[in-house]
Amino acid sequence: MKTEAPVAHEGRALILVVERDPHVRALESYFLNEAGFSVEFVGDGEAALERARELHPDIIISEVLVPKIDGLALCRAVRSDAKLRDIVVLIFSILAVESRAKEAGADAFLRKPLAERRLVDTVRELLVLRRVSRPSRETT
């Protein structure tokens, strides 16, 4: 899947979204940008790991059902990588896998469909918690 150019802006937290569905991507892009975040999209777990190492985003939002490395495996890979483990992971899936997301080390879980207020509020809350609990990396 084509990797879209990052919408990087000064002072904006960067969110890496792992999502294949074009409608979900379009809505996530719109609502997260509207809320003041920079959003980068990838379409599979392998590309997500690659981009995470390049960009070191503040948050990864991932669907579970993505190719190559699924969202839960991606989450485990992030947690086991010393350079990535401070990145907050939000599993946002059509599947009801709350407990599996927890076991994989996710910081939060949301079930689809997209409800913009809930998504944006969760992201904001996670960013605040990240600043408190993982001060090693300053959120911009």
């Binding site: 009801a96 997301a101 996710a106 939060a108 879980f109 969760t122």
Partner: peptide, 17 residues
């Protein structure tokens, strides 16, 4: 895992119905 996850889980259980 932050507390939010448990909230989300409860929310999801409700959502399925």
């Amino acid at each position: 895992m932050i507390e939010h996850l448990d909230d989300a889980r409860a929310q999801d259980d409700d959502e399925s119905f």
